[in-house]
Simulated scan of single mutants.
Amino acid sequence: MPTYISEVDVHEAEAQNPQDLVSTWGSIREEIRELGGEVLDSHAVLGEYDFLVVYDVDDRETAFKVTQVIERHGLDTRTMGALPIERIGELVDDV
């Protein structure tokens, strides 16, 4: 299953209550699960974005749906495909 990483930005107007934000993440995890995906990891981060979410889904179309799920909750995303370092070694050996 391909892995994707979404950088997530919270607008100050949307994050009035930290407890609501925690509840929102629970809803997002469940909605990703309903799409057939799995959240592998998530972190609050310092910097340009507020959160980092790592998840596996079946394909790019489902990854797009995940971004829509996240954005529907008033959050902005920037999403990238990812490969484990071990897999890069295998790919290089094939070249």
Rank of each mutant, 00 (worst) to 15 (best):
M1R: 13
M1V: 14
T3I: 15
I5A: 14
S6H: 03
V8F: 01
V8L: 01
D9Q: 14
V10A: 06
H11Q: 05
E12L: 10
A13K: 10
A13M: 07
E14T: 05
P18A: 05
Q19P: 01
W25R: 07
I28W: 02
R29L: 05
E31T: 05
E31F: 04
E31K: 08
I32Q: 05
R33G: 03
R33T: 12
E34D: 10
E34P: 00
L35W: 02
L35M: 09
G37F: 00
E38K: 11
V39N: 05
V39L: 07
L40C: 04
S42W: 12
A44C: 01
G47S: 05
G47V: 09
E48G: 08
F51L: 12
F51V: 11
F51A: 11
V53A: 11
D56V: 05
V57C: 07
D58F: 10
D58V: 14
D58T: 14
R60F: 13
E61D: 15
E61T: 13
A63C: 06
F64S: 15
F64W: 14
K65F: 06
T67P: 01
Q68W: 10
Q68Y: 10
V69R: 08
V69S: 06
I70W: 03
R72V: 00
R72A: 08
R72D: 08
G74F: 01
G74E: 02
G74N: 03
L75Q: 04
D76K: 07
D76Y: 02
D76A: 08
D76N: 08
T77M: 04
R78D: 08
R78Y: 13
M80V: 14
G81Q: 12
A82N: 03
A82L: 04
L83I: 15
I85T: 15
E86L: 09
I88H: 10
G89N: 12
G89A: 13
E90D: 11
L91W: 07
L91K: 11
V92L: 14
V95P: 00
V95S: 06
